[in-house]
Design a protein around this nucleic acid. Structure first.
Length: 246
DNA sequence: GCGACAG
DNA sequence: ATCTTGTCGC
């Protein structure tokens, strides 16, 4: 674990931003290995983990669910106190350590981790998925429901399931304009209905390319908008939260 | 000064 | 993220 990159909620804002630039420099937005879509659906394929959180008053439940093909390999969670409020662009300083606490409870070593939030799609190219991915030095992907920054190369409205639209860096991103930082990914869509499903905003966290990040998302989606590992982690976090109550 | 902004 | 029942439309 890269302890020098562990987030410090007590740091000053400019120090947090400086650390994010260092993390972006240490991150890799290229593929570490070949992506095998068929293997992902196999029971002998890669271990994919989903991470999600549920909130209480001033505490947070961080849940991790590791899957391999159709089966769940392991579930883990941690309950932690929240030290700072949510600040756009500094999410990892609020939720990073709680997530790392859950990872300490995890025995499995995932081949890829799906985080709820952005990775490369970030003002300083170091969103939650990138930050934690670099700290743990594990291939990671950021899966968000809303776009933090960047500009779609074309309309992301009415995409069919399986389609993707590139998201490029703009003036809000600390990267050359036009740099491909992610994709709007349509994992689910109603074909014969008036209803619409908004695409997910996917970006590489660490050790994966933007294209592969989108591939992982589509390969682990199973009929629902969210990738299966993420859905399961979401449900697990809620279960634990209900057990604790208020 | 105003707007914009993952969870 | 969270507070929450019904309700619209496959």
């Amino acid at each position: 674990m890269r302890t020098e990159f562990v987030p410090d909620p007590g740091a000053a804002r400019d120090e947090m931003e400086a650390q994010q630039r260092d993390i972006a420099a240490a991150a890799t937005f290229t593929d570490d290995f070949e992506f095998d879509g068929d293997a992902v659906g196999s029971d002998t394929g890669p271990l994919v983990a989903g991470v999600d959180q549920a909130f209480l008053d001033d505490r947070v439940v961080s849940a991790i669910v590791v899957t391999r093909g159709e089966s769940v390999v392991e579930r883990a969670h941690a309950v932690s106190p929240l030290s700072i409020p949510y600040i756009p662009g500094l999410l990892s300083f609020r939720e990073g350590n709680p997530i790392l606490a859950a990872f300490e409870e995890l025995e499995t070593e995932p081949d890829c981790v799906l985080f709820d939030g952005s990775g490369h799609i970030h003002f300083r190219q170091a969103g939650l998925a990138t930050h934690i991915g670099v700290v743990l030095d594990v291939p990671s992907v950021g899966v968000a429901k809303n776009l933090l920054c960047g500009t779609p190369e074309s309309s992301t409205e009415g995409l069919a399931a399986g389609e993707r639209v590139g998201i490029d860096a703009d003036g809000d991103v600390d990267a050359p304009a036009g740099t491909r930082i992610g994709y709007a990914v349509q994992t689910k869509q109603y074909d014969s209905s008036n209803r619409h499903v908004n695409p997910l905003l996917v970006s590489p966290g660490h050790r994966v390319s933007a294209e592969t990040a989108a591939d992982w998302t589509l390969a682990t989606a199973a009929g629902y908008k969210l990738p299966e590992p993420t859905r399961l982690a979401d449900a697990h976090a809620d279960d634990v939260k209900r057990t604790i109550d208020t």
